[in-house]
């Protein structure tokens, strides 16, 4: 099996497309994690909202390319609006409170969002097709591969580069990086830290929703779709290092390859393997492969 080049090529592409879809979601989590210092359990629920919004938009536009891409954008916009309200009126009051309260706040969001989704869309499962322009497969010489998955493989690095440029080359990015290191100092220097936090939360939530919308054609849209993705995202963020963009990129690749090749080699014990990996990283390098140890840790 492992000597068959076609088979191996497909497995590598599979690993990449899985990794890149997860990266888009996890990079948003690491952003929120890194800047706001909040373990956002609701990230999976945001992902779910994105998929449902896409479903509704595609439903009203019909299964066309326009409908699909409008749906992806709508997912981001709707989630951004919801996240803005949540951050402004609720979360922003918790920044100076204990971690536990923030964590439980996001847990409350999970419960509320899941039921709200059920009230709006019902408990049935839904399905969205690939956008028509990407429903086929591309001949890569060695094998055919689905266009949509290739698109994900390309989109992931583009998102990574876009985020990196945003963080490194813009004034906004500098403020964000500063907020990650020392929020008090940033405030003392005259930046409105609350606005920074608000923006990060809104952008992060919107990215999770877009990630959910992009995942929708591959999965079933149902009320339980958030449960596993959140654990996957935690694993990626921990492996890569909290707050590290390239860390989550590499973390996503590791998880993607581990899932695909772990399944091939260890079969169904792969389920245990990922947690062992996560624990291993936390013990050896709690700040992750690409993160930096924090001075205040004792």
């Amino acid at each position: 099996m492992f000597t068959n080049p076609t088979f191996m090529a497909i497995q590598v592409l599979n690993s990449l497309s899985l990794a890149m879809n997860l990266f888009i979601i996890a990079s948003a989590l690491t952003l929120i994690f890194g800047v706001l210092r909040i373990v956002n359990f609701a990230h999976g629920a945001f992902y779910m909202i994105g998929a449902y919004v896409l479903y509704s938009v595609v439903g009203s536009f019909g299964e066309t390319d326009l409908g699909f891409w409008t749906g992806v954008i709508a997912a981001g916009v709707v989630m951004a609006a919801v996240a803005y309200v949540v951050e402004r009126f609720l979360l922003s009051r918790l920044y100076d409170k204990e971690h536990l309260l923030q964590l439980l706040f996001t847990f409350a969001l999970v419960l509320i969002i899941k039921d709200a989704v059920k009230m709006i869309w019902g408990s049935l499962q839904y399905s969205v097709s690939y956008p028509p322009m990407m429903s086929g497969a591309v001949n890569l010489g060695i094998t055919y591969y689905p266009t949509y998955l290739l698109f994900l493989c390309i989109l992931g690095p583009l998102v990574a580069i876009g985020l990196w440029l945003g963080l490194e080359k813009t004034r906004w990015g500098r403020i964000l990086r500063a907020a990650r290191l020392d929020r008090e100092m940033l405030g003392a220097l005259g930046t409105d830290v609350t606005k920074v936090f608000s923006a990060v939360f809104v952008i992060g939530a919107a990215m999770a929703a877009i990630g959910g919308a992009l995942a929708a054609p591959r999965v079933a849209v149902d009320p339980g779709m958030d449960a596993l993705v959140i654990i996957d995202c935690f694993i990626i963020v921990i492996i890569g290092g909290i707050g590290s963009l390239w860390g989550s990129f590499v973390g996503a690749l590791i998880l993607g390859f581990l899932t695909v090749f772990g399944t091939l080699i260890f079969r169904e014990w792969e389920i245990v393997l990922v947690y062992v990996m996560m624990i291993g990283v936390l013990l050896v390098r709690p700040w992750g492969l690409f993160g930096q140890p924090e001075a205040e840790r004792h």
Partner: peptide, 16 residues
């Protein structure tokens, strides 16, 4: 070929 419960990425399985 068994996959873990709740998984929804089947690309590996399909090629297997």
């Amino acid at each position: 070929f068994l996959v873990k419960l709740g998984t929804n990425d089947f690309s590996t399985l399909i090629s297997q």
